[in-house]
Amino acid sequence: MGLGRGSAVVLLISLCFLVLHSQMAHAATYTVGGSGGWTFNTVGWPNGKRFRAGDTLVFKYSSGAHNVVAVNKVGYGSCKTPRGARVYQSGNDQIKLVKGQNYFICNYVGHCESGMKIAINAA
């Protein structure tokens, strides 16, 4: 018994939906720093975790006391904010990871140098 055109289209649409849904289901949400949130000495927080492109990082912190800056490798290593870097200040920032290296720092004076930075490689 063969499928008619209408049945084949419905089957194809159903398969596409299933594939897209399964990819979205794999995205995870992580609170940076765990219950302590985004604070000093979070540099080691990513250790032992597996991140994927599309996962969301939630940075929870006291707005006005800290911030989150998405930086490049040089900014991460030097604890300096490159020109044009995106600065988040809400205290509850949600940032999706891109494939490859993702770097974040707090650019308040002395905070990055005190370990308030993370580097994440997302597969």
Score class of each variant (00 low, 15 high):
G37T: 08
K60Q: 14
G36L: 11
W45M: 09
N121E: 13
N47E: 13
N102W: 05
C79N: 12
F40I: 08
A122F: 01
Y88C: 01
I105Y: 03
R52Y: 13
M1S: 11
N92K: 10
M24P: 00
G54E: 14
V87Y: 14
V68D: 07
S22P: 04
Q89R: 15
Y103N: 15
S7G: 06
K99A: 15
N47D: 12
Q101A: 14
V87S: 06
T42I: 12
K49Q: 09
K49F: 04
K49P: 03
E113K: 15
G91S: 11
M1Q: 11
Y103C: 15
F51N: 00
L11C: 06
M24H: 11
G84P: 01
L3Q: 03
H66Q: 14
S7I: 00
N102R: 05
L57F: 02
G44A: 07
G91N: 05
C79W: 03
I13P: 00
G48A: 07
V43S: 14
K80I: 11
S90W: 15
V43T: 14
G54H: 05
I120N: 10
I105Q: 04
N92C: 05
G91K: 00
K96M: 08
N92D: 10
R83M: 11
N72A: 06
A27Y: 14
I120M: 06
N92Y: 15
S62H: 08
C16K: 02
S35R: 00
F40A: 13
N121L: 12
M116N: 02
G84I: 07
G44L: 12
Q23D: 08
L12C: 10
Q94K: 09
L15F: 12
L97F: 10
A123F: 03
L12Q: 06
F51T: 04
S114T: 04
L20Q: 09
Y76S: 05
M24E: 11
P82S: 02
A65Q: 13
M24F: 12
N67D: 09
V58G: 02
R52H: 09
P82Y: 01
I105W: 08
S114Q: 10
H21E: 00
L97C: 06
G64P: 02
A28M: 08
S90V: 12
V98G: 09
N41F: 06
C112Y: 04
Y76R: 11
S35P: 00
N107I: 13
V10F: 00
V74I: 06
K99H: 15
M1I: 00
N107C: 07
G44K: 08
F104C: 07
Q101R: 07
F59I: 04
T39P: 00
A65S: 09
A122W: 09
K73W: 00
G6F: 04
L11A: 13
G54L: 13
C79R: 15
V98W: 13
T31Y: 12
I118F: 01
V69A: 07
E113D: 09
W45K: 05
S114G: 04
W38A: 04
F59V: 06
T31A: 03
R83P: 02
S114N: 08
G36W: 06
V68R: 02
G77M: 07
K80P: 01
V32W: 01
A122N: 06
A27L: 13
F104D: 02
H21A: 06
S22T: 05
V68Q: 08
Q94C: 02
H111Q: 14
L97S: 04
F40G: 03
N92P: 02
D55P: 04
Y88M: 07
G100N: 15
I118E: 08
A119D: 11
N47I: 11
